[in-house]
Amino acid sequence: MRNYLVLRVAAKIVVPFMLLFALYVQFHGDFGPGGGFQAGVILAAAFVFFALIFGLPTTRRLVPDRLVETGIAAGVLVYAGVGFIGLLLGGNYLDYFVLDRDPAHGQHRGIFWVEVGVCLTVSSVMLKIFYMFAGRRRREDDA
């Protein structure tokens, strides 16, 4: 689909907004609908869209496999790490009240980091899955 000028231009315009919207959903999730899961999926969708228009190799160069795989693990680690920080600061596991002197602030901070972790994992997993499916070539010999 590389040769369709309209698609290329449209994608160039739309993709940044999709990324921006994903970030908005991520950080505005406290006040409106949104959060890590949705933001992760939208983020992944933006890259998938980009890959559909500009081709998989371009996207793979832009977001290398290594980075995506790191993201998968890092998200879970961030989430679990927030729990351990709570533990180290003398609270229970995943206890956000101890993260700040003001308990409500602590909660806010905890939720923020947890959502970051969720977003990382979800977007990386989705993107990785897409890479895996799109990267395989259909084998004709066994058909």
């Binding site: 006040f31 949104g34 995943l94 602030h105 806010h108 947890v114 959502e115 969720v118």
Partner: peptide, 21 residues
């Protein structure tokens, strides 16, 4: 308790943090 107006986010990340993990 959490200072987050979106109840869904609050429950997701805080009250049910283990589930979400």
């Amino acid at each position: 308790e959490t200072g987050v107006p979106n109840v869904v986010t609050a429950v997701l990340a805080s009250y049910r943090g283990y589930d979400t993990l």
